[in-house]
């Protein structure tokens, strides 16, 4: 009895109709159908629906002009074209753009870091090339830490003030 209930399953019958069952199960259902009017009824109904659908679909497809439809779709795509921002976006997300761009940027950044920012030179912050003026005295000093050049001058040439006190 339990076996019969399994055979009467509409899903199993549907798979039987679609020839999706294994050979053993197919032959068991085939035998069962000979003695089960309920299953025979379900199977006939399924066969009717299947035949009707297949016939209808074939009829519609025979009327449809697939080539014309395809042509119209392509024509519409070509006339509308792809917007510029879509092309730009496609270009930017493409490896063909960002891989060479990143490589080029890296090379240029390295080049600039070498050309534009040379290593700090040792020595004074300023080199005095010439000095000319009416001053009583002038001294050139340098700070210890960062070698800042200091130009210290005594402004009052004639007054004799102690103006150069450090």
């Amino acid at each position: 009895m339990k076996m019969d209930h399994n055979f009467c399953d509409p899903a199993v019958l549907s798979r039987f109709l679609d020839k999706e069952l294994g050979p053993d199960e197919h032959s068991r259902i085939d035998k069962h159908l000979k003695y089960c009017p309920a299953c025979q009824k379900v199977l006939r109904a399924n066969q009717c629906i299947s035949t009707f659908l297949r016939a209808g679909l074939e009829k519609e497809l025979s009327h449809a002009d697939v080539e014309d439809f395809e042509e119209r779709v392509f024509d519409r795509i070509q006339r509308k074209g792809v917007p510029w921002w879509m092309k730009l976006r496609a270009l930017f997300i493409s490896k063909k753009f960002y891989v060479p761009a990143a490589a080029m940027a890296t090379v240029l950044i390295l080049l600039f870091s070498v050309v534009r920012r040379p290593a700090p030179e040792p020595g004074p912050s300023a080199i005095i090339n010439s000095f000319k003026g009416d001053v009583a005295s002038v001294m050139i000093l340098e700070t210890r830490k960062s070698h800042q050049t200091i130009l210290w001058f005594n402004e009052n040439l004639m007054s004799g003030d102690d103006n150069g006190e450090i």
Binding site: P120, E121, S125, A126, I127, I128, N129, S130, F131, K132, G133, D134, V135, V138, Q148, T149, I150, L151, W152, F153, N154, E155, N156, D161, N163, G164
Partner: peptide, 25 residues
């Protein structure tokens, strides 16, 4: 100072660096 030149100097200054000129009271 008061439109009269006190001194002039030509110095070579390192980039991003400075020179300190001092002395006037």
């Amino acid at each position: 100072k008061k439109k009269k030149e006190v001194f002039q100097t030509v110095s070579q200054l390192l980039n991003h660096s400075s020179i300190i000129v001092g002395g006037p009271k």
